[in-house]
Design a protein around this nucleic acid. Structure first.
Lengths: 197, 197
DNA sequence: CATTTCACAATCCGATCGTATTGCAAAGGG
DNA sequence: CCCTTTGCAATACGATCGGATTGTGAAATG
């Protein structure tokens, strides 16, 4: 048998080149030749690892979702036994484009958003992702309630929706450049402070 | 002199056909021929009214922004002398994709978002739009404060940011289909209730 | 050492893209 | 009535697209 390469790794390399292109110029600019050039490989290689452009885009979106999940998990596992509201904050901050990696993730997310609206396979993944996030936020809020850190008027389910939407909206503002990371954190902390007793 | 037509009206017709295409298939699918077919006119007519595809896209984005501004204005002018917090609610609801027109607006907005990140002319318009909205929300909140409808812990500027981000996040959820109009209204009202005394 | 199989690279193909060019019908003003 | 100007339609053009096809070097098996 011939050369053995890690196909998953190669696909991921290609997907990340695709991200960089999508970030800079949008998904419209993601052609086979452009991705190949960005990755520094031949067009033939892309065709070897992906049956079509569509499959390549799908894989790139899935890979981005995996990375986001991993980032959230890392952020939550960061502190050993944090006060519950600190966990809520950490979780929400993980959703904001604060560094290079999360900015890439957020941009790729937005780039695929519209496409997802017309692509069942993608929209399912998006919906599942946000459902997972909503559940995680709810869980953290319930912990906070048990720890007595939550004000009386807070409804966990509703507040989780508010927080998820808030993080999404702040992300958009940050990507567009009309909100700095500091302002976003300030706004987030202002809101979180009002959840406490 | 020959036939006289309302050039602005023709451009708007074309822009709205472009929206319909962008909603269904994203901006990638917006080619001259596709827009011409959607509008039921010849490709030559598009070229007559727009110097390039780029200019056509720019005009379509601007036209969408105009419509949003007008919708917000209508919504605010709706009631003669509403209680200030009702004005805040009306304003935020105007940002949500609750009917066909606002859904179109929201979708077009998202479609142009990524493109705006790499297009100075567009990103300027986006930034100005959100600054205007932020100012309008702040003004409403100040009215509410003067009317004594606002709880003590509310900081007008910060809360305006929260509300704008919240509306943006809820819009995304509604577009993706994981939030119904009723759920979004519920979440919004839940949050607004916590702003009152 | 021959052979098979994988991992590409290179080239080709028809379709479609945005744009430029050309032609022409219709509608006032001279 | 002619002439100019506008509002398009039609077509031509080179570039680029996604995808198919073909060619080749390297490695493991027999």
């Amino acid at each position: 048998m011939p050369k053995i390469v890690d196909a998953g790794e190669r696909r991921r390399e290609i997907a990340e080149a695709l991200w960089r292109l999508a970030m800079r110029q949008g998904l419209e600019a993601v052609s086979l030749s452009a991705v190949a050039a960005e990755a520094g490989v031949s067009k033939g290689r892309l065709q070897h690892y992906f049956a079509s452009r569509e499959e390549m885009l799908l894989f790139a979106a899935g890979h981005a979702a995996d990375r986001l999940r991993e980032r959230v998990r890392r952020q939550l596992a960061g502190q050993a036994a944090p006060p519950p509201m600190a966990a809520v904050r950490a979780l929400l901050v993980a959703l904001l484009p604060v560094d290079e990696e999360s900015r890439t993730g957020a941009l790729v997310n937005v780039a695929f958003f519209i496409r997802a609206l017309a692509t069942p396979a993608l929209s399912g993944a998006f919906r599942q992702g946000s459902a997972e996030l909503l559940e995680t936020i709810s869980r953290c809020l319930r912990d906070a309630r048990q720890a007595g850190e939550l004000a009386a008027g807070i409804a966990v389910e509703q507040e989780a929706r508010v927080l998820l939407a808030l993080a999404g909206g702040l992300s958009s503002g940050m990507l567009m450049g009309d909100t700095s990371a500091e302002e976003a954190a300030e706004t987030l902390d202002y809101h979180l402070a009002r959840l406490r007793l």
